[in-house]
């Protein structure tokens, strides 16, 4: 890996001090790429934290233009940008923070049609999408391409995050084998809730890419901010999982 530049050392000095991370960890982040699928309430914060941490390349996938109802949580969108492209706003805000960051903006939501291409662009994926067909397409491609997937979700004042390591852990389809018919794209949530889970998801990505700490591999972290309860649950590998059943090297319990 090429050494850090003086500018990189200056910008990332405080996190380079983190034991177990150091300049080597920073170099790994700089040389890594991450797909953030949708840059809404969750993905805005994931992308912003990764940009701040010095990730080398981000691929952002999100269709549509900024609406008033985005602004309570989608922190890369602005009032002045109402009616304009979400990914363009996200790209502009991220480049203001980190001009060294390379960004590929895709004004499409992830789908079965583009999942293989988008996942193939990066080293790691962060799932911030609202709908399960998107989430399942991402999960399937990550398993097939053996790319780590950080899965983030929320509702009301609650959040969930887990890290899926193909060949090692259960996958999203092990946890939720079917598209839940009662789930809707629009639901109650505060920006502080999506921001919390976005920070946790970004930290998981940083850990997996740099080798720092222990990611939530095979573990679902859930929280309820009504009473600030955080819980960890072991995920169960489905023997007959249609997605990862034949790729997991070891059984999980």
């Amino acid at each position: 890996m090429p050494p850090l530049t003086d500018e990189e050392r200056a910008v990332y000095e405080w996190q380079i001090w983190v034991p177990g991370f150091g300049e080597t960890g920073q170099q790994k982040l700089r040389d890594a790429s991450v797909l953030v699928s949708r840059v809404g309430g969750l993905g805005s914060v994931v992308a912003y934290e990764l940009a701040a941490a010095g990730i080398g390349r981000l691929v952002l996938a999100h269709a549509g233009n900024i609406k008033p109802s985005d602004l309570n949580r989608q922190l890369l969108m602005t009032h002045a940008g109402l009616g304009t492209s979400r990914v363009e706003s996200a790209q502009r805000r991220l480049k203001e923070l980190n001009p060294r960051l390379e960004i590929l903006s895709v004004a499409e939501n992830l789908s079965e049609a583009n999942a293989e291409r988008l996942v193939g662009e990066v080293d790691l994926v962060v799932d911030c999408a609202p709908l399960f067909p998107e989430r399942f397409a991402m999960n399937r491609q990550c398993i097939e391409q053996k790319k780590p997937l950080v899965d983030c979700a929320m509702y009301d004042l609650e959040g969930q995050v887990t890290t899926i390591l193909p060949g090692e852990t259960p996958c999203l389809a092990c946890l939720y084998p079917e598209d839940p018919p009662s789930w809707r794209r629009e639901f109650p949530v505060f920006g502080a809730v999506s921001g919390t889970i976005g920070c946790l998801g970004a930290m998981e990505a940083i850990k997996v890419l740099s080798g720092l700490g222990e990611p939530l591999a095979g573990t679902l972290l859930t929280y309820d901010l009504r009473d600030m309860t955080f819980r960890r649950r072991r995920l169960l590998k489905l023997d007959n999982c249609s997605v990862c059943g034949s790729t997991t090297d070891s059984g999980e319990s």
């Binding site: 969750l42 609202p130 989430r135 639901f187 859930t222 819980r231 649950r233």
Partner: peptide, 10 residues
């Protein structure tokens, strides 16, 4: 005992 519901992002 916890009921875990499938939720997404947004």
């Amino acid at each position: 005992v916890h009921f875990l519901t499938a939720v997404g992002g947004g």
